[in-house]
Design a protein around this nucleic acid. Structure first.
Length: 270
DNA sequence: ACTGGCACCTGGGCGC
DNA sequence: TGCGCCCAGGTGCCAG
């Protein structure tokens, strides 16, 4: 479900309800996610006070004085606030009950998500080797160009590699390449610096714009406040196979790269 | 060091 | 209606 804009939308949705609040109880109905949820998660969260909800890549960090719960939503996960004692559905795996009477609920039908505990989350194995945040100053065309030299993977797969830059998933990779006019099949190592500068700009633009719109709701994404994201209406390429390119009317093409579908315009993206 | 492919899992939508 | 098939917003890990 979520790419970076959806995770950020979720973060903003839940943060005001849980910050500066003590955790009274943690209910874990199913520990079998992508990795088994360790008991250290509930053990450390109970009775602690949430100090902040932050994000690194597509990970949500629920911070306390002692450490942080590291939550990944996988492909189908979502977090939202409910009143305590709201009946849980079959895919509601984790409830973090707060002393306010509210509960932070984690739902994940496909169970590709994960939940860890760490006293030093940014140094956690899953986080420490990640590339820069796309909306930070550490990410720019120079970075992409330098990292891409000698690489033969397609530029689409290259920008989706979290060790290069985080937060660019399948939707926004197609969108950014479309906006930059770059053919997604090009070998990353053969794309010029100038084009990478353009691409870094469109990556920032499309992610910022999607965050502003509350994310993209394809099927069932709702932010932590229950609102559907409305970026879908702004998609230029993703999901538009056969529909006319908004610039040249050429039907949008769909191809498969690395087992993921890519959408692009053969005319505009060269 | 890279690269491509597989794995994990459920549900929605479609064609018959 | 029901069944089988294909597809889906992610990403760690493995073999080559």
């Amino acid at each position: 479900m979520p790419e970076l804009p959806e995770v950020e939308t979720s973060r903003r949705g839940i943060e005001p309800h849980i910050v500066d609040t003590r955790v009274s109880r943690v209910v874990i109905r199913n520990r079998s996610l992508r990795w088994p949820i360790s008991k250290s998660v509930d053990r450390n969260l109970v009775d602690s006070t949430i100090t902040a909800v932050t994000r690194r890549a597509k990970y949500l960090l629920i911070n306390t004085e002692q450490g942080a719960a590291i939550l990944h939503l996988g492909m189908s996960g979502s977090v939202f606030i409910v009143d305590r004692d709201t009946p849980a559905g079959v895919h509601d795996h984790v409830d973090i009950e707060l002393e306010t009477g509210k509960t932070l609920r984690f739902r994940d039908p496909r169970r590709f998500g994960s939940l860890h505990w760490s006293t030093d989350p940014l140094q956690h194995k899953l986080l420490r080797a990640l590339g820069p945040e796309p909306l930070s100053d550490q990410f720019d065309g120079d970075h992409l160009w330098a990292q891409s030299r000698g690489r033969r993977v397609s530029i689409k797969q290259f920008i989706m590699n979290a060790h290069i830059v985080v937060g660019v998933g399948n939707i926004y990779a197609s969108e950014a390449l479309y906006l930059a006019g770059i053919n997604p099949r090009h070998a990353a190592g053969r794309v010029a610096l100038r084009r990478y500068q353009s691409l870094a700009t469109t990556i920032k633009a499309v992610l910022s714009s999607a965050i502003k719109a509350g994310g993209t709701t394809l099927r069932d994404f709702y932010g932590g406040d229950g609102q559907a994201g409305y970026f879908r209406q702004k998609l230029q390429a993703y999901g538009r196979e056969g529909e006319p390119c908004r610039h040249c009317d050429t039907p949008i093409t769909a191809i498969v790269q690395g087992q993921r579908t890519t959408f692009y315009c053969k005319q505009c993206q060269t």
